[in-house]
Amino acid sequence: MVLSVLLLGMGTAYYEAPRLLQKQMKRELIAFSAFLLIGMALALALALDWPIPNPTRTIEFIFRPLERVIYPQ
């Protein structure tokens, strides 16, 4: 699992980065690397069963009071 994630990430970088370097698109390269790092970190965390930031929990926490009002328990 971990190996396949790493391979996929490297493949993505190999596919995308040379073109960006060639065209001198620095901003795009930075954004691409940042997104790829976040994505790889998340994918590795999923593969290794580490805790993953969960926006759904946050949403549920924020809207719980409102949900209590609107929906009957």
Partner: peptide, 18 residues
């Protein structure tokens, strides 16, 4: 950015994990 395409593939990782 000048192009959105560089973000497409990394975004796929994030989408699948989420």
């Amino acid at each position: 950015l000048k192009d959105y395409r560089p973000l497409v593939l990394p975004y796929a990782f994030i989408l699948v994990v989420l």
